[in-house]
């Protein structure tokens, strides 16, 4: 079981807004999943390197040359709010 504080903290990290009912529901569900994953405690991993990826690929580089990219209109075509040149967001700085 996660505490209300725990749930509110991860909701904040995930930029999610939850009402009281959701907090209670997710506390139980996430707590149940975390109780289950504690099964990993019984595995000895003291000499095991983490495996972030199955493919043994190193960094992949490309030539530093300019290539065509999405035109501006296409890039903006799904924007919830745009002036045709930029993505528009609410004001983030107050006037002095």
């Amino acid at each position: 079981m996660l505490t209300t504080q725990d749930v509110l903290k991860v909701a904040e990290l995930g930029r999610l807004k939850l009402d009281d009912e959701e907090v209670a529901k997710f506390a139980g569900q996430l707590g149940g999943i975390l109780d289950y994953v504690a099964v990993l405690d019984e595995v000895d991993v003291s000499n095991v390197a983490p495996m972030a990826h199955v493919a043994d690929v190193a960094n992949v580089f490309r030539e530093d040359v300019v290539v065509a990219s999405l035109p501006r209109a296409a890039s903006l075509s799904n924007a919830p709010k745009t002036d045709g040149k930029f993505f528009l967001v609410p004001q983030i700085l107050e006037h002095a």
Partner: peptide
């Protein structure tokens, strides 16, 4: 939402 929060945790 559950998976985002579990991952964030």
């Amino acid at each position: 939402k559950r998976r985002i929060m579990l991952g964030a945790y």
